[in-house]
Simulated assay, not measured.
Amino acid sequence: MASLDPSALAAARYHGDQAVAPGMLDFAVNVRHPRPPGWLIERLAARLPHLAGYPSAQDQRRAQDAVAQRHGRAREEVLPLAGVAEGFALLPNLRPALAAIVAPSFTEPAVTLSAAGVPVHHVVLEPPFVLDGVMDAVPEDADLVVVGNPTNPTSVLHTREQLLALRRPGRIVVVDEAFADSVPGEPASLAGISLPDVLVLRSLTKTWSLAGLRVGYALGSPEVLERLTAQRPHWPVGTLQLTAIEACCAADAVADAAADAIRLAQLRTEMVVGLTSVGADIVAGQAPFVLFRLPDAAHIRTSLQRREIAVRRCDTFVGLDERYLRAAVRREWPLLVQAIHEISQVSMCASKGGHR
């Protein structure tokens, strides 16, 4: 398709934060913690007096060098971004003739490419949403392929071999690794591999609770990054963003995030057991959120909302319908499971009462 119709566009521009009102228990947004760590707040606060000046070349280099050292790449292979969303917004600069997007997946790539007049073909995976056996479904003439790993919203982690099998002469493969650092050991990441036709997008907003600052980076060949930024405005990434990139990619911060990822994985396992106990059909995955299916998911979601508990609706994703919900991994997961149980029990009693 060359563009999204109005209803599809409205669905694609829906994001989890729109489900959350102040004071709600938030399972809809995948930011790892309610606030950044104290040391990071102090580091950013120390730069506030410098905001009268433009972001400096030195700030830029320090951020690039921190990322380069973190992933074993060259400085020239690192592009600081105002969040991964900016990376998607820059994709039309690559001037693809046909973009293939592996779905279900984050919706922004389809929105930005379609708005730029790029034909978009969705390669829709069936449950359990893995890449096995779908390589032939990607059009051979697609010169841009976008895939998430682990994928939002499915949480599925594809292997490196599966991702590399998407490569073709004249094609760029874009891998959205916004949640890669939430997988212990990052076993499937391509961030540390220099390839001329692979562009990796990474986010720091989820792990470090910086969604309000918009922080991320791209990893790719200098030639691809040059094409990507061909029409980028001056000073696209501010001083505080560059400071955050440098700080969060330092060795001690990376180690802290890695240790937290292990704890998060254990919490996810416990949450999956709890959701399964109330009848949820879980999609196997490794991201810091859980995609699950319930027969009466739409009713449960609206009932949870009345109880001031937010979960992510999934009928706005290509390839999913109203039976699916996504919930971020939170230590408060027992409250979500208990609420689903109570709502289901009330619905069951009402159903039985209506058939007497």
Rank of each mutant, 00 (worst) to 15 (best):
H15I: 14
S189M: 05
P187L: 07
G117Y: 11
Q231R: 13
W235P: 00
A327G: 13
L204K: 06
V124Y: 07
L240W: 11
V200G: 02
D143S: 01
A68E: 01
L267K: 03
G216D: 04
S114L: 00
E223W: 10
D17I: 11
V120R: 09
G185V: 06
A10M: 11
D197S: 09
L48F: 13
A8I: 03
A211R: 13
V20T: 10
R227Q: 13
G185D: 11
G274P: 04
L304T: 05
M135H: 15
L294I: 02
A115F: 10
R202Q: 13
Y324M: 02
S277D: 08
H234D: 13
H15Q: 12
S155Q: 06
S347N: 14
T154G: 14
L164S: 04
P187T: 07
S56D: 03
V337A: 08
P196K: 11
V118A: 00
F129T: 01
R43A: 14
I340K: 03
I262N: 09
A110G: 13
G279E: 02
T229D: 12
P295E: 12
L320I: 05
P22T: 10
D252L: 00
P96N: 06
G216N: 10
T243V: 04
I41F: 11
D315M: 01
P236Y: 09
L190I: 13
L113C: 08
H299T: 10
C248F: 04
G72C: 06
D197G: 03
G170H: 10
A11I: 03
A66M: 05
V198S: 00
P49V: 05
I309S: 04
D252Q: 11
I245E: 06
L294N: 04
E246D: 10
G185H: 10
L225K: 03
R356P: 05
I193Y: 04
A287H: 03
R171A: 13
V146M: 05
L190Y: 06
D256R: 11
F179L: 12
A103R: 13
A21D: 14
G133W: 02
E223K: 12
L90G: 01
P80E: 08
F129Q: 07
A310C: 07
D252E: 15
L9H: 09
S7C: 04
L91S: 02
V31T: 15
V183S: 00
